[in-house]
């Protein structure tokens, strides 16, 4: 569930922040997902579990609003949910989105640069 949510989140970030509707994130985004999961495994050990918990919260919170967890939503709904958290008054939500956005954006553009 954690991995699936990270995958959905990375695809959303790539779609919104890197492609902006000019293409489909898949399947190039798959390597971004792998990078982000690998970075999660590298982060300081005391932060890993909280990030997993927060990711699952992020996923399941969608059930209240959209009737399905984040990873089951279509891309537009997912982009909306990411925006909600990005603009949240709660700092941990903004930090959460920023963490994944930073990693996915950096991963995506590094991959693109390597390809060229």
């Amino acid at each position: 569930m954690f991995r699936d949510t990270v995958s959905a989140l990375c695809h959303t970030v790539v779609e919104e922040r890197c492609l902006a509707g000019i293409g489909s994130a898949a399947p190039e985004a798959n390597s971004v997902v792998q990078f982000v999961l690998a970075q999660h495994a590298r982060m300081p050990d005391f932060l890993r579990a909280p990030v997993v918990v927060l990711t699952l919260m992020f996923d399941l919170q969608c059930i209240l609003k959209h009737g399905a967890p984040f990873r089951r939503l279509d891309c537009d709904q997912r982009i909306q949910h990411v925006r909600d958290w990005r603009l949240s008054r709660l700092g941990f939500r903004r930090d959460f989105v920023r963490l994944y956005e930073s990693l996915a954006v950096l991963g995506w553009h590094s991959m693109k640069e390597r390809c060229q």
């Binding site: 779609e15 399947p27 798959n30 792998q34 279509d74």
Partner: peptide, 12 residues
Amino acid sequence: NPHRDHLFDEES
């Protein structure tokens, strides 16, 4: 697939 706009590749 983990979500609908995901495509498997050979590394999956």
